[in-house]
Computed example of a mutant assay.
Amino acid sequence: MYETIKTELSGSIFTITINRPDKLNALNQQVMQELALAIDEVYTNKDIKSGIITGAGAKAFVAGADISEFLTLSNEQGAGLAKRGQVIFQRIEDSPKPIVAAVNGFALGGGCELAMACHFRLASDNAKFGQPEVNLGIIPGYGGTQRLTQLVGRGKALELIMTGDVIPASEALSLGLVNHVTTAEELIPKTRAILEKIHTKAPLAIAKVVKCVNASFDKDLNGYETEIQQFGACFGTKDLQEGAEAFIKKRAANFTGQ
């Protein structure tokens, strides 16, 4: 079905691997189209409870966009490219099921933007992050100026984007850009362990958490009001009933997402 990505469903976790290792998994339009289809599958397949996005090979998560595609674009075509990329990455950010980036090497340019669109990030100790677009006479276009600012703050985001500096996983951890740094061998097992823990929680509540946290960055929404609405929407669900009964009876809850 796919030519530039690989997918695998194991234990309710859907792993999407960008599979162009000879190109350091650079994002071209075919990758973006296939990634969009894979994200649609996360939304629609009831057997999928969460997703991981990672890169093929030992060198790169995604080392950027395929720059050869940029050379002939007009202003309007460039804007259209950014718009399409932002729509796809917004789908990742808005997913009601957690999607986590397992960054296994270079995450540069569009690769860093892809990682930041995920709900959170784990990195191997050889990972490197950066938005070096200014070196090419352009700027991040897939949401990088916004999400990097949200994650590391205005001053550091401006410094990183304006210098084009590439930072190691250890610095990304200290900045809050990634949640955990592991060895390369432990990256996927650690990511899966966190998702498996999330799987034991109420799926409806997890989806509402995503909606509320994202609302805090949406200028058109009042995050506190969103929280009130989503909190109220939990009442009357079978999951709340199950969670409350399990708590009272001191047993493990068995949530069904209803």
Rank of each mutant, 00 (worst) to 15 (best):
P189W: 12
T54P: 05
Q77V: 04
E171H: 13
N104A: 05
I198D: 03
H180G: 03
R84Y: 12
G144I: 10
V134P: 00
C234N: 15
S170K: 15
A202T: 03
A233Y: 06
E225C: 13
G141F: 07
F61E: 02
P203D: 03
G57N: 12
K219V: 10
S216Q: 13
T149W: 00
A233D: 12
T191Y: 07
H180F: 13
E227Q: 08
N45K: 06
L24Q: 03
Q86E: 13
D220C: 08
N222R: 07
D66I: 11
Q131K: 12
E69F: 02
V166R: 01
A157K: 03
Y142E: 08
S12V: 03
G11C: 07
E113F: 02
T4D: 09
K201C: 13
I99W: 02
E69S: 14
Q90V: 01
I5P: 00
R192H: 09
F61M: 08
P203E: 02
E242L: 04
A184S: 15
K128H: 12
S10H: 15
N135D: 11
H199A: 01
H119M: 05
E225M: 10
F89R: 01
T163W: 06
G232Q: 12
A58N: 14
E133A: 15
R84F: 13
L240P: 03
L108G: 05
Y224I: 14
Q146S: 13
K49G: 02
A244G: 14
Q90K: 15
K97Q: 04
Q230E: 15
Q77K: 07
S95R: 01
F106Q: 09
L187F: 07
G141P: 04
E159A: 09
S10G: 08
N214S: 15
F247M: 14
L158G: 02
L35T: 02
M116S: 10
R251G: 02
E76W: 01
V209N: 08
Q241D: 11
Q29K: 11
L24C: 12
F14G: 06
N126Q: 13
V42N: 01
L73C: 07
E93C: 04
T237Q: 05
A207D: 13
I39H: 03
D239F: 04
A252H: 10
A233P: 04
A58F: 01
A184I: 10
E69Y: 05
S12W: 01
I53E: 00
E225H: 15
N104H: 07
T256K: 05
G164R: 01
V100M: 00
M32W: 00
F70S: 15
E196H: 11
A253Y: 00
L173K: 11
N222E: 13
E242N: 09
A79W: 08
H180A: 08
I161D: 03
K190A: 14
G164E: 10
A184Y: 11
D40G: 06
G110K: 04
Y142Q: 02
V213H: 00
Q29C: 10
Q131I: 14
I139Q: 06
Q30W: 00
A38G: 05
S174F: 05
